[in-house]
């Protein structure tokens, strides 16, 4: 992945650039889905799985995974969950407003290791947002990949995001899409139960490359299932989340042993972090 993307568009490590909100949709009660474009009209260059530092002056900066693929139009997507000061302020913005971004930061998904292979993506909750960049990428370059399976789990049906995408994926022949909710409501017709239950419905081969993104508790249980299928650590990729301030490998907040999630990740092969006790 090119590191120079950062120096190309900014003056110092901490200089953000302006982005315009092209579209803003309340995705769930707590999450808002923004489509952005650079204010200078240039195409924003990035790779699936990379992150942005999103900021509003006076409020601060937060790390957010990019939720769309560079294979799509000139715009790019982020989904912001209201959790703190910055996200609360960002989620008050609407179409036509501006915000500021730094990035793209970090290494994205290891496309070279996924291409020409069977791919399974396991997304829990808000973990669908960064993985959507990869889902779109695979769908756009479908012939570059073999079988493509997607697991998506949320606590409740109300927490499902990208409803239009879900509709498309349910009907698509390009992806084997499986979804589940932990706690169904009256109108939920689909599968209910933890995301690990979906493995029973599928036939994932042992040479599949797997990408995981979700809450910290999800990792352990999914990895346990993957081990049962005989998938090796080198073929399991985790998109990790940590507290982050600088996003450029300096501030120390996201450090796990000798790794920085922001610059060495956020995507790691399980083999890289298996023995880093604080990673999982």
């Amino acid at each position: 992945m090119k590191k120079s993307a950062l120096t190309k568009t900014t003056d110092t490590l901490f200089t953000p650039q302006k982005a315009k909100i092209i579209r803003a949709v309340q995705a769930t009660q707590t999450e808002k889905h923004f489509t952005l474009a650079l204010a200078n009209k240039e195409k924003f260059q990035f790779m699936p799985g990379q992150i942005l530092e999103v900021s509003l002056f006076g409020f601060g900066e937060i790390p957010i995974g990019i939720a769309s693929s560079p294979t799509r139009e000139n715009t790019f997507d982020i989904v912001v969950r209201t959790v703190g000061r910055v996200s609360a302020a960002v989620n008050k913005l609407d179409k036509g407003d501006h915000l500021f971004i730094r990035g793209p930061l970090g290494k994205g998904f290891p496309l070279d290791k996924l291409i020409n292979n069977n791919v399974l993506i396991v997304a829990g909750g808000i973990g669908l947002c960064p993985t959507r960049s990869l889902i779109q990428y695979i769908l756009d370059r479908r012939t570059d990949f073999k079988t493509f399976t997607l697991f998506y789990g949320t606590k409740t049906p109300e927490q499902q995001m990208f409803l239009d995408d879900l509709k498309t994926w349910r009907l698509s022949k390009d992806v084997h899409f499986f979804e589940t909710v932990d706690v169904p409501n009256a109108s939920w017709q689909g599968h209910a139960g933890l995301i690990t239950k979906l493995f029973k419905q599928t036939n994932i081969s042992s040479n599949t490359r797997v990408v995981l993104c979700g809450p910290p508790v999800m990792f352990k249980f999914v990895i346990f299932e993957l081990k049962k299928l005989g998938i090796i650590d080198q073929n399991i990729f985790l998109d990790l989340e940590r507290r982050m301030k600088c996003g450029v490998g300096k501030c120390g907040h996201c450090q796990i042993n000798n790794k920085y999630v922001c610059t060495d990740g956020p995507v790691f092969a399980l083999s890289e972090i298996r023995f880093l006790e604080e990673a999982l």
């Binding site: 006076g58 601060g60 900066e61 501030c251 120390g252």
Partner: peptide
């Protein structure tokens, strides 16, 4: 040590 926090204020 060189870790740092970043905060905005008006």
């Amino acid at each position: 040590c060189y870790c740092f926090d970043v905060q905005d204020s008006w």
